[in-house]
Design a protein around this nucleic acid. Structure first.
Lengths: 165, 165
DNA sequence: CTCGGTGCAAAGCTTTTGCATCCGC
DNA sequence: GCGGATGCAAAAGCTTTGCACCGAG
């Protein structure tokens, strides 16, 4: 496991931000909380609670699911992590620090998630906020679509045949 | 329970569409399925599975939750009902027939859901579909916001104090 | 008559909670 | 040392599944 200096730098920054948040909210700085934050910022993937829990377990870091849930709530609250609902059941999470605002395209074939950016989303948010008299705090725009096929009729994203839909 | 002629007309139309769907997909036309469709189109509110189940129970219509779940899948599939995820757990549903495309503003204070319409959503969908090479089948845009307060500091939507947030 | 649909209850899965223990402050 | 945080397991909430029976085609 070689350390990417850029990733390490980011981790350092988010740890500092988390510390600040914990102090401001009179919350304890437990090793578990930092371990979870670190694990999340070790790769840029989207993940769900169980994936994170198992990943930490596989690294022999002993945390309970309850703590993972608790800490994720804190991280969402501190805006270091974003929570999403792509499917119908489990929540998905992603890093929030250092990312510019973006939304998601979900492949209905292989469930992969792609990010995109469109300034018009912010414009809509502004327009509707003032029209409906809301201060818009967050938004989620999910586009669900079927992918283009390659010359063999396979999904461009996962290479599995699109015929089997 | 007086019958609104306009509502009855809509019910008739959706029953016909559902029949067509069931025939095309070689599915049986059971009384439960039509009863559930009717119940959904009896009022224009958003609802979750349990609300629908209890509403039918209170009308002494005997259905099981399993059938409600099954039928909702069919209705979503036939595009007579739309499924949404506003919070983190339960799915919410709404009528899809006769409604123009719209999105949702969710009040973070009282969880009420408001509808709005903005043609730019469709434009974003088109732009991103061609950019990412997806045929966009559906989308969901949710704006989460805190409501404006009235002169007493109460939520404009539900009249409960905003101080207790 | 056949086989898919239904009701009921049990199981499954994600998330929350209760409680004893631990440890940050 | 106090009180909040953790781990574990049990419970809770939403949804799915298994099975016997029913009824649409």
């Amino acid at each position: 496991m070689k350390k990417d200096p850029k990733v390490e730098q980011t981790k350092k920054e988010v740890r500092a931000l988390f510390t600040q948040y914990l102090e401001n909210h009179k919350q304890r700085k437990t090793p578990e909380r930092y371990a979870i934050l670190d694990e999340i910022y070790s790769s840029k993937t989207h993940f769900d609670v169980d994936e994170l829990f198992l990943k930490m377990k596989s690294r022999s870091y002993r945390v309970s699911r309850a703590t993972v849930y608790n800490t994720l709530d804190l991280l969402v609250e501190s805006e270091l992590v974003k929570r999403h609902q792509f499917g119908q059941n489990t929540s998905h999470y992603e890093q929030a620090f250092g990312y510019k605002q973006h939304d998601h395209m979900i492949c209905t074939h292989c469930k992969k998630v792609f990010e995109f950016c469109d300034p018009r989303v912010q414009q809509i948010s502004n327009t509707m906020g003032s029209l409906l008299k809301f201060e818009v705090l967050s938004h989620s725009l999910h586009l669900y679509g079927s992918p283009s096929a390659d010359e063999n009729g396979h999904c461009l994203n996962c290479s599995i045949s699109l015929q089997k839909l």
